[in-house]
C-alpha cells in the first residue's frame, strides 16, 4: 500500500481542464449506472438497484459452462411492441394461434410531469443455468442440453403433468395440444440454429435490434460485450427465483441502429 501511495504522490497533477469531454461523460455515465438512474422504475432505493445491476453477479463474471453458451440481451427501450418477434416465432416454430413462446408485456409509466410513457418488456424462456422446469420434470422430457445449455423438450417423454409450468418463474412453457406435449422456446434450435442460421427468429425479425442473440462464451460477440460493460445496468427478471437466467435486460440511450 505504501508503495502505491508513494507512486501517486510522485505523479503530476494534470488538472481537470485537461480531461477530455468524452472521458468526463463516461465517468458520469458510470456513476449514473451504478446509482441506477438508468435502471428505470426501480430508483427507489440504491440497494435494490445495486441488486439489479449485479442481479446475476456470478453470471456476470463467471466462466460460461457451455460451448456455445447461448443467451440473449434485450434492449428494453428499443422495443416498440411491433410484435414482429412474436409473429416470426409463431411462424417458424409452428406455435398455435392461441399460444406463444415469446410475448411482449407492456406497462404505463407516468414521468415526473405526469406524461404517461409506455414501456415494453419482451419475455421468453430464460434458458436458466439452474432451471427449475428440468428439476421437476418426472421423466426428463424437459432437459438442459449438455452442449449449448438450451432448455429443450423431448416431446415423446412428456406426460403432461404441467409441473414445469408451475416451476417456471417466467411462465415460459405451455401445453401444445397439437404436439400433445409441453412446448417452449428452444432458441429456434431445431428450426434455425441447427440449420446454420446465426440468429433466432425473434432476433432476426426485430427491426430495432432490441434482441441481441449470441454466444456468451465468445468474448468477441456483441452479446458478451453488451452484458459485460459498466456503462449500462444489466439485469435479469425475477432474480429472487435463483435460476440464473441467460436472458438479460438493459436500456441504452445511444441512437438505435435501425436496419
Amino acid at each position: 500500500m505504501k508503495h502505491i501511495k508513494h507512486d501517486l504522490d510522485k505523479m503530476k497533477n494534470e488538472g481537470m481542464e485537461n480531461v477530455p469531454m468524452e472521458e468526463r461523460r463516461q465517468f458520469l455515465k458510470m456513476g449514473l449506472a451504478i446509482t441506477g438512474l438508468f435502471a428505470g422504475g426501480t430508483i427507489f432505493s440504491a440497494m435494490s438497484v445495486m441488486d439489479k445491476v449485479f442481479a446475476s453477479s456470478d453470471d456476470f463474471t463467471a466462466q460460461y459452462p457451455y460451448k456455445p453458451h447461448y443467451g440473449m440481451i434485450i434492449f428494453q427501450n428499443r422495443c416498440v411492441d411491433c410484435e414482429r418477434c412474436v409473429a416470426a416465432c409463431g411462424e417458424t416454430n409452428h406455435v398455435p394461434k392461441e399460444a406463444y413462446r415469446t410475448r411482449v408485456l407492456s406497462k404505463e409509466m407516468p414521468d415526473a410531469v405526469g406524461i404517461v410513457k409506455r414501456e415494453f418488456t419482451p419475455v421468453l424462456c430464460n434458458h436458466c443455468n439452474i432451471p427449475q422446469c428440468t428439476r421437476v420434470c418426472p421423466t426428463k422430457a424437459t432437459y438442459k442440453d449438455p452442449t449449448n445449455g438450451i432448455v429443450m423438450m423431448n416431446i415423446n417423454k412428456c406426460i403432461g403433468c404441467l409441473t414445469c409450468q408451475e416451476a417456471c418463474p417466467y411462465n415460459a412453457s405451455y401445453f401444445n395440444e397439437e404436439k400433445h406435449a409441453v412446448d417452449k422456446c428452444n432458441f429456434c434450435f431445431d428450426t434455425r440454429l441447427s440449420k446454420g442460421e446465426k440468429l433466432t427468429a425473434c432476433a432476426a425479425a426485430c427491426p430495432a435490434t432490441c434482441r441481441v442473440f449470441g454466444d456468451l462464451s465468445d468474448k468477441g460477440s456483441d452479446l458478451f460485450k453488451a452484458v459485460h460493460q459498466l456503462e449500462r445496468p444489466v439485469w435479469v427478471l425475477r432474480p429472487e427465483a435463483g435460476t440464473k437466467p441467460n436472458v438479460f435486460y438493459t436500456k441504452d440511450t445511444s441512437p438505435v441502429a435501425f436496419k
Binding site: 421423466t139 426428463k140 422430457a141 417423454k157 406426460i159 403432461g160 400433445h180
Partner: peptide
C-alpha cells in the same frame, strides 16, 4: 394429459430430482 407415457417413461427415464 398423456397418462400412458407416464407408465413408460417414469420407469425408463426417471428423474431423481423430481418430487413428482
Amino acid at each position: 394429459k398423456i397418462p400412458w407415457r407416464m407408465a413408460i417413461y417414469n420407469v425408463i427415464s426417471p428423474n431423481l430430482t423430481s418430487n413428482i
